[in-house]
């Protein structure tokens, strides 16, 4: 099942890239990075939503699986957000001749990245009982998500928005390339979260077995 998901995601991403570089190409050339940038931004936000749901579910049920799902979402979300910021910087350099500028959107996506990097640091640096760590991480997961709207609004106190709010695509092929990329990235993110959760679960079981011996 997971194998099909991964293969499907790969196929969709290749199709999106091929479309984006041939009949769906946007001029000037640097704008083609949007086919990676936009799907990653949407999927990063989606992973953080799943992280929030998993954190609430953990506090409600105390099942360790939810904690592991939250951990996996944070890892995948940070990866996607890093790609988002990286491609954004490349685009910004080519389009506006600057790697980074404090415009509302760039500031808020940098803040989001920081929030979930701290979540990961919190996970690895809390010693002691795993249940306690899971509870504290769940609390931080909820607080961090409450920060997301705050981040978006606070960034409006910074002048000069260079980031275009939304792009309109000229042809159906361009929209198709973007949608394929969106779907492919979403599938990839889902499969990665699944894989990581499974791996974390196995590791936890192994640790428990080793402790019992």
């Amino acid at each position: 099942m997971r194998r099909f998901l991964l293969i499907g995601a790969l196929g969709l991403l290749i199709a999106s890239t091929w479309l984006g570089l041939t009949i769906g190409a946007i001029t000037p050339v640097q704008r083609n990075v949007l086919y990676v940038h936009v799907p990653n931004s949407v999927c990063a936000l989606l992973s953080f939503v799943v992280l929030l749901v998993a954190s609430i579910a953990y506090l409600a049920t105390s099942k360790p699986l939810w904690d592991l799902i939250a951990a996996a979402c944070a890892e995948v979300g940070v990866l996607l957000a890093s790609i988002l910021n990286g491609t954004g910087m490349i685009f910004s350099r080519a389009e506006w001749n600057t790697w980074w500028t404090p415009s509302p959107r760039l500031v808020s996506s940098a803040m989001l990245w920081f929030l979930y990097v701290v979540y990961l640091i919190l996970r690895i640096s809390l010693p002691g009982a795993p249940r306690q760590r899971a509870r504290i991480c769940a609390v931080f997961g909820i607080i961090a998500f409450l920060d997301v709207p705050m981040v978006y609004i606070s960034a409006r106190f910074i002048p000069a928005d260079v980031h275009p709010p939304n792009f309109s695509f000229d042809t159906g092929w361009q929209t198709a390339a973007l949608m394929l990329g969106m779907l492919g990235t979403a599938l990839l993110a889902g499969a990665l979260i699944w894989l990581r959760t499974d791996l974390l679960l196995r590791r936890q079981r192994l640790e428990e077995e080793l402790l019992q011996e």
């Binding site: 920081f114 929030l115 701290v118 640096s125 010693p127 002691g128 306690q132 504290i136 981040v151 606070s154």
Partner: peptide, 19 residues
């Protein structure tokens, strides 16, 4: 409660206070 170092507090609080 988790007996970790105090340096953790500063990054956790700062990152949420950022906005």
């Amino acid at each position: 409660v988790s007996r970790s170092q105090g340096s953790l507090l500063s990054i956790v609080v700062l990152v949420v206070l950022m906005p």
